[in-house]
């Protein structure tokens, strides 16, 4: 048996920031705000995850990807804990994550309930096509100026 490599929690956070969201690979699970806590309990690493939408199928993939990434770095004894309270909110998206979303073509969430501007041509003239989109966390919008349809990350 190989001796347990005990990375600092800060180093673990940095590793987790390399795990992409399986649906939106330009942001990490840390950017998404689903990682709530990282703590050592003896030789066990406890990682607390809060699901985005209660039925989001990406959550099981996220759990697997986290375990795989940590295992690659010698962390085998990992306990993933799911915590639903406090409930996940789009406020937990990191500033880096928001900027990356827009660059990728997904308008980041706004408290006003709709996108601030078209992620492609930056026009503020946008309209809603549908309240639901390609994943539970997104809605479909369209730019009235460049006519490009785009995903909007719902604000919850």
């Amino acid at each position: 048996m190989v001796a347990v490599t005990k990375l600092s929690t800060q180093e673990v956070w940095a590793l987790l920031d390399k795990v992409p969201d399986p649906e939106i690979p330009v942001i990490s699970v840390v950017d998404l705000g689903v990682i709530r806590d990282v703590q050592w309990n003896g030789n066990t690493l406890n990682v607390t995850i809060t699901p985005t939408y209660s039925g989001c199928p990406a959550m099981s993939v996220i759990a697997l990807d986290i375990k795989t990434e940590l295992a690659k770095n010698g962390l085998e004894n990992v306990h993933l804990k799911t915590q639903i309270a406090p409930a996940w909110t789009t406020d937990w998206l990191s500033a880096k994550g928001r900027a990356k979303l827009e660059e990728y073509g997904i308008a980041p969430p706004q408290v006003s309930g709709g996108p601030q501007r078209c992620p492609n041509c930056k026009s503020a003239h946008v309209k809603k096509i549908s309240q639901f989109g390609s994943t539970p966390c997104k809605a479909q919008w369209q730019c009235v100026d460049c006519l490009e349809p785009f995903d909007y990350f719902k604000c919850i």
Binding site: P51, Y53, S54, G55, C56, P57, F132, G133, P136
Partner: peptide, 11 residues
């Protein structure tokens, strides 16, 4: 998506 939310709440 609505169905998915409801099944998630069921869990």
């Amino acid at each position: 998506n609505t169905a998915l939310d409801l099944i998630g709440q069921t869990q």
